[in-house]
């Protein structure tokens, strides 16, 4: 056994190492390139489709954030400005006042404002809204459906795997392009603008 043999072995090991290294590099880059080829063009963000939403209440509880990044958004263009707002009042409410016993919202996040006879405007305080969807359910069943649950993108941390999406029974969550980050049921924003 000579030094030369030892060196030879070292050289061989180095060579194998190098070969494997470069083939691995090519492999990793290749996979990356192939995937990049069919990757989404822009960024993607999580959003829920109100048409599929069943207002199960999981948005309020299953988000990684407390309170949830899912909020009720009011599409004013769809609102009928009803006095008897079924998104604001409990089902059997008799007197249409802002008393706590009449309000559907558990956190009192909806403000009711008189505009003119017989119209009332409803404004959602997003700091208070917890995304439980009770008002959404109420509005959809009796009103125009102008209250809709949406992921608020100033709050959403855009998790790799949205924890609400995972548990959504209606499979309403999906990734959408960031330039079309909101989707409303029965109303297309672009048409108006």
């Amino acid at each position: 056994m000579s030094k030369a043999g030892e060196n030879n072995r070292l050289d061989r090991r180095k060579f194998i190492n190098k070969t494997v290294r470069y083939s691995l590099a090519i492999g990793v880059c290749g996979v990356g390139a192939v995937l990049a080829g069919k990757a989404s063009k822009g960024e993607l963000v999580w959003q829920l489709d109100p048409a599929k939403c069943v207002q199960c209440g999981r948005c309020a509880t299953n988000c990684v954030l407390t309170p949830s990044a899912v909020k009720c958004i009011h599409v004013y263009d769809m609102c009928g400005y009803c006095d008897l707002c079924s998104g604001y009042f409990r089902v059997n409410t008799k007197d249409l006042t802002t008393g706590a016993e009449n309000q559907l919202c558990p956190t009192s996040a909806i403000e009711r404002k008189f505009i003119e006879d017989p119209y009332f405007e409803y404004h959602i305080d997003e700091d208070l809204c917890i995304g439980c969807g009770k008002c959404v359910k109420g509005c959809a069943s009796f009103g125009n459906g102008s209250l809709q649950l949406q992921v608020n993108h100033s709050l959403c941390v855009n998790c790799n795997q949205c924890s609400i999406a995972r548990d959504c029974p209606a499979e309403a969550f999906s990734r959408v392009p960031a330039d079309k980050a909101y989707s409303f049921k029965g109303f297309n924003r672009d048409e108006l603008i």
């Binding site: 004013y76 263009d77 609102c79 009928g80 119209y119 405007e121 009103g143 949406q150 993108h153």
Partner: peptide, 21 residues
């Protein structure tokens, strides 16, 4: 179900807020 009202008092409806990602 309920048509959007036209306000006589000239009330303008607030915009629907959709914060950008």
């Amino acid at each position: 179900r309920f048509p959007k009202p036209e306000f006589e008092t000239g009330h303008t409806q607030p915009p629907t807020l959709t914060p950008e990602p």
